[in-house]
């Protein structure tokens, strides 16, 4: 399998302790209806055109060797079936209006880039977070990456949804300081309905992770209106954590945000959560209180109706 990196987010303050660089990998085996990073789901690369950047010079149309790019009334269309990602249009476009999501980088190159912010990691207790998509599915790439980062004294975190045979994750654990583990829904049927997979393996793996002394674990639960925001769900996950993962360091309830509409549009898709309103602070606080009854380390973050954090 080829490993594509979607993006590198420096000075990330939201994916683990301290100041971090988050590496987003492409490809996910879950298809969460609310996914905020839909461009990360496919294992293959995407190419798309950003209308607001385009100056209408037609360079892309004339450069494409496959004639995959056409223009009509100032609207550029790219035929994904013809595109072989030769990148000529991306290089040619003076406005960076054509983007390919998914780049190939060697582990060594990536490590070099990640080490540039070492001073910031060290001062803050931060490091590198591998996220996605489902980062763990790229375990063959992740293994040397994590090893090299550990060799250089970098704190490592892996953000995962946990839906794969446990031994894959096990290979990575010796080089991982922190696992950010998603538990989305306690109800198997609903989990399947919202994410496209059953939750059995995910919860089994979580329980196995809970038995290990290291690495540290943060559980993350996205609170999605009409999906995961029920009392039953929170109580259910809380009970599970209490029984199976008593030593976790943190349980984050992350409230839904509605900012991904544009990303879906670029992918030529409609997002079913486009017009869904944000949750209220009161709702988040009451769910969090519920969670705290069982799991003291529960907390909540994210956007609510009264605030979007910049």
């Amino acid at each position: 399998m080829r490993t594509y990196i979607l993006d590198l987010q420096k000075m990330s303050t939201e994916d683990g302790p301290g100041i971090r660089t988050t590496v987003f990998f492409k490809g996910c085996n879950l298809k969460c209806a609310w996914c905020h990073n839909p461009e990360s789901i496919a294992f293959y690369r995407h190419i798309y055109w950003l209308e607001e950047r385009c100056m209408g010079c037609q360079s892309c149309v004339s450069i494409c060797p496959k004639k995959a790019i056409t223009s009509e009334n100032g609207i550029i269309s790219i035929d994904a079936r013809l595109c072989d990602f030769c990148m000529k249009c991306v290089e040619e476009c003076p406005m960076n209006a054509i983007e390919v999501k998914g780049m190939e980088t060697s582990v060594e190159e990536l490590v070099k880039e990640l080490m540039k912010d070492k001073a910031f990691y060290d001062a803050s207790g931060g490091g590198v977070t591998l996220s996605g998509g489902e980062a763990v599915l790229n375990w063959e790439y992740l293994l040397p990456l994590l090893q090299q980062l550990k060799q250089r004294g970098v704190h490592t975190a892996v953000d995962t949804a946990g839906c794969y045979p446990f031994p894959i994750l096990q290979k990575l654990l010796p080089y991982t300081d922190l696992i950010l583990y998603d538990l989305k829904h306690i109800d198997n049927v609903l989990h399947n309905e919202f994410t496209g997979v059953e939750n059995t393996l995910i919860f089994q793996n979580a329980a196995r992770l809970g038995k290990l002394k290291s690495p540290k674990v943060w559980i993350r639960t996205p609170i999605i209106p009409g999906a995961t925001d029920t009392k039953e769900n929170i109580i259910g996950i809380a009970k599970f954590i209490k029984e199976n993962m008593p030593d976790i360091e943190r349980w984050e309830l992350i409230s839904f945000n509605n900012l991904a509409g544009q990303k879906y549009k670029l992918l030529g898709k409609e997002w079913q959560y486009k017009d869904v309103e944000l949750l209220t602070r009161t709702k988040m606080e009451s769910l969090c209180a519920l969670a705290k009854k069982q799991v003291k380390k529960a907390m909540w973050s994210g956007a609510t109706k009264s605030e979007v954090t910049l």
Binding site: Q9, E14, N37, I254, S255, L259, G302, A303, L310
Partner: peptide, 10 residues
């Protein structure tokens, strides 16, 4: 200029 919300940025 980044817009950040937990688990999301653009």
């Amino acid at each position: 200029l980044l817009v950040r919300v937990t688990g999301y940025n653009a």
